[in-house]
Amino acid sequence: MAASIDEPAAIAATAVAATPGRRMWLATWSQTEFKIGLVLFLLLVGTAFIYPLLSDIDPTKLSVRERFLPPVFLEGGTWAHPLGTDQLGRDLFVRSLVGLQNALMISVAVVVLMFAFGATVGLVAGYRGGWIDTILMRLTDAQLSIPLIILAIIILTVSRPTPFSVIVVLALAGWPVYARVTRSVTLAERRREYVRGAKILGASDSRIMWLLIAPNILPPIAFVAVLDIARMMIFEAILGFIGIGIQPPTPTFGTIIADGRKYLINAWWIATMPGGFLFLTLLSVNLMGAALERARNRLLRGTI
């Protein structure tokens, strides 16, 4: 039912006395999807960071005798290597866990970088307008028109792929989206009365931007950035798969799957099992992200 000023007070009085961030958090937490995602995520990440410490299996150790061991649920599999081993006898479970560590650290770093840089530029462009804004808009237009992955591939093939350069390249390719979103929210926020009120009080532009507008508009954008962690994990994996991501022997999902692809017919688990692992991780992040996104939509609509 559309709320209008004219509805009985009983209907209109639904606003709770809490900050937007808190209301959004409450709306997120009330969704089952979020809890499912969070439990799955904690489980996977906990295992990824704890199991390799406890286990004495080295993810890069070769073992000729243990090549092509199938996963535990197939005939010939053992609990010593629950997901089986690859063409060089390396344990796929531990390799996947270390791959998950790397993927997660890289994508979180990328998203933090993209967010920090994009949000700053977007805030300044949206608030000040003028030439900064024009340049930003043309830049993001151009950036949107060329697939992020092409850009990343071009930069990485012509430079040397290290974890650092992968992070920088993905962040470079992805920040304009954040700039664009922040800019458009800032444009709307700038027209709100409280900004005019602060100007009339004599507040400086930087005070208005950083102390008034930023705390209001950035939390919802930051929450939804969770979805980009998953996206960046996929990109990192694609780069590794093509062979221009983090280089072996460091295990990453992309390189493991690329290796396994060569033995797809005889030892299908090498490519599929780590991918399944990646899928579960992405699913957990995306479920949390979807719940956050919904909560944000409700916040923007004013129904929470």
Binding site: E33, A237, I238, I257, W268, A271, G275, L283, N286
Partner: peptide
């Protein structure tokens, strides 16, 4: 719709391609 889209978006395209090529074609 929410669960379907969460699952789809979590399937890495290159991995899905490999699995489909393995199962459906091979």
């Amino acid at each position: 719709a929410l669960y379907a889209s969460s699952i789809f978006v979590s399937l890495p395209n290159f991995w899905l391609a490999i699995v489909l090529a393995l199962v459906v074609t091979a």
